[in-house]
Computed example of a mutant assay.
Amino acid sequence: MSTQLSWRASEATVGELAARAGVATSALRFYEREGLISSRRTSGNQRRYGREMLRRVAFIRAAQSLGIPLAAIREALALLPEGRTPTPEDWARVSECWREDLNERIRLLEQLRDNLTDCIGCGCLSLTKCGLVNRNDQLGSEGPGARQLAHPGCFQPE
């Protein structure tokens, strides 16, 4: 299937949009159910997406790759205008919503990178030294031992 949409086409089928956006048709249906994109229905009940949905899908995928939750993506997309393709200024306003959060994530990743050698092998024991996961020895109040290892999947830097 071609990933090209005719420059004349104002709308795309679910298959055309999926191919062009590089996502499964099920992803488009999911995004629509979640209120992230919209379509109209033909008389035969087939979905038709406006060309502007291609940019929305690209934005959703980029945001997801940054670990931004769907609820935050939905809130940001709600800031975009209805009925027209967003301008660069519209996208700048939307992306500004996440600047502070992304800067904090970058700070935490840099801190992890810089302290990784000290952190490897500690298992986040109740050590006052661990500023990544056990800042101010907060896990010590939960009991002795490697608290994070006792709860797999709990590595959540603050």
Rank of each mutant, 00 (worst) to 15 (best):
T25P: 03
E16A: 05
S39V: 07
K129T: 02
S6V: 05
L139G: 06
S141D: 14
G143K: 01
T25L: 00
A72L: 12
C154S: 11
S141N: 13
N45M: 11
E52R: 13
S95N: 14
R107Q: 15
A146T: 10
L108A: 12
A58D: 07
C122Y: 06
L36I: 04
S95C: 15
G35Q: 08
Q111C: 14
G35Y: 12
A72W: 11
P88S: 13
I68D: 05
R56H: 04
R84F: 10
A21W: 05
L149C: 11
R93G: 03
A63M: 09
E110D: 15
V57W: 03
E34N: 11
G145W: 00
R99H: 06
D137F: 08
G121W: 08
I68A: 07
S141T: 15
D118M: 07
R61C: 06
G44T: 14
H151E: 10
D137C: 09
T87I: 12
R74Y: 09
G140C: 10
G22N: 02
T3H: 07
P81G: 10
T128C: 04
R33S: 11
E89V: 15
G83N: 04
P152K: 02
L102N: 06
R99D: 03
I60F: 08
N115Q: 15
R40V: 09
P157D: 00
R105F: 13
M1A: 02
E104P: 03
A24E: 01
W98T: 14
L125R: 12
S38T: 09
L79P: 14
P81M: 13
I73S: 07
C122T: 08
Q111L: 13
L79V: 11
L109R: 14
Q111G: 15
Q111T: 15
G83M: 06
E89W: 12
L36N: 00
R47P: 05
H151S: 08
R29W: 01
C122S: 07
R93P: 02
G121S: 08
G83T: 06
E104R: 11
I60K: 04
R8S: 01
Y31M: 06
R74K: 13
D114L: 01
R47V: 03
L116N: 15
S65E: 06
G143A: 02
V14C: 10
